[in-house]
Amino acid sequence: MKSLRGIFRREVDLLRMQVLDAVLPLAFYLLVVMLFAFGTRANDPALAGLSVSILWVGAVLSALLPLPRLFASEFEDGTLEQWCLASTPLVVIVAIKLFAHWCLNGLALAVMAVPLAVLLGLEGAGLGYLALGLMMGTAILTLLGGLSACLLVGIPRAASVLPLLVLPLMAPVVIFGSGAVRAWQLGADPAAPLYFLGSLFALSATALPWACASALRNAYD
């Protein structure tokens, strides 16, 4: 238990040392939304109609940014090899590592989406559904990206290959996540898409940490 908390603490400390790494995706998110707004006519009411799509795509891209280097520092300083040999199961270590990363990255993006949504003209309960959807969506992205990062650990081209591997698999997540907000906008029940998203999250959270652990062992065979 103590070692598990240690892994979590280590992750938080690493990020505290490099605050910029934590803030960078958030700034990137703001910039994407800003450029989208400038891509339309000034004060175009159509922007509000597209806001959900912009916010989701922006969040996915921003959450993607740090993923290629998720295990890079562990790989370089040899921590990863120790993890493979540690008495704590590798899958537990990886799951905690991914959870810590999501707390510092995905959760922040989901919170950040709310003021950005207000800028784009979204209001009311839709903001809540957006944030809730993004929390699950970034969690799924972290798990899928975590698997890709494990597969690509130590590969220089990881940064260009990882989005190709992860983004096609994000199609259902974006559909259900933005679908929840749009269902609310249309006066329908947003619970159904959120349940679908929840089941996707449950599926990824149960299967992918094991896949990650197996992929990491593969790298050290």
């Binding site: 890709s148 591997l165 698999l169 199609a171 259902p172 559909i175 898409p193």
Partner: peptide, 21 residues
């Protein structure tokens, strides 16, 4: 091989989600 296996789980999910969409 991991990507191939993870991908095949996703193809029906994509189909279902687009139908819902």
């Amino acid at each position: 091989a991991w990507i191939a296996v993870v991908g095949i789980v996703n193809v029906p999910i994509v189909k279902f989600s687009v139908n819902w969409w």
